[in-house]
Amino acid sequence: MTATDYSQVAPQGNIFLPKECKIVNVKQVTELERHFTLKHADGSKVKFEPGQIMEVSLFGFGEIPIGYASSPTRENTFDIVIRTVGRVSGAVNKLNEGDSLFIRGPLGHGFPLEDLRKKDVLIVAGGIGLCPTRSLIQYITDKRSEFKRFILFYGTKDPSQQMFLDDIAKWKKANDVEYHETVDRGDSNWKGNVGVITELFKKTELSADTRVVICGPPIMFRFVVAECEKVGIKYENIYLDLERRMKCGVGKCGHCQINDKYACIDGPVFRYSDLKKLEEAL
């Protein structure tokens, strides 16, 4: 995993000063979630690693940790998805095209691109976990020849929770993306799979050398890892994107501490084999 370029993170050497971004486009994706496309207000190129995070902020409301939801291969703009859960997200989700938003980032360590190249890659995304993994999905589809098989599992509570419907339509059609989806509860229009995300492992044969990336609610990790184990995938080839209260994003405030690691700077992406040794991580 590559180290963060902190000169980008800390303008004027002050790690708490954000930079301004402009909202280029906004879409309401579900009842609670809005999808923003942003550009740096100073016109600079967007540089980050898939899986890295940023602190999104609105003055007077505060900051929240959010993963990049687009690939750095698209360097003029970047995407984020905000779910309305509290004060900051609620305020951000009232913004419109042309409004300013502030970010500190990129922060932390993203997905291990070097380890994924020339390998089969399985991404398992549960619910809002699709957003940060979309940075990797887009990266892989943009540089498809650098990877071998690409399998994507996506599970949500119900069909109304599905995000990036345009992307899903594309993945379904693409010959080089093996896309499988499920919902916990269907509705009258739903004709696809119903059941927990681990059911999708029955849909395809995985090689033991597959690299797996998992992002979703904490409860999901254990079950998905167990499925990977059945196929013979080693712990060091499984990567988890962790959720924690990453308040400062720069390894200071202590809120996201797991043992002697900080989710915000040592993660949020960790190798499962490392996490297993870390009490409280899972």
Binding site: F16, G60, G62, E63, C248, C253, G254, H255
Partner: peptide, 24 residues
């Protein structure tokens, strides 16, 4: 112990304010 929380505070005009850190 040096953990902190960060909270934004508005001045009463609700236009200006500050981002503070507090011991947590």
């Amino acid at each position: 112990c040096y953990c902190f929380d960060v909270q934004d505070k508005w001045n009463l005009n609700q236009v200006s304010g500050m981002r503070n850190r507090y011991w947590d």
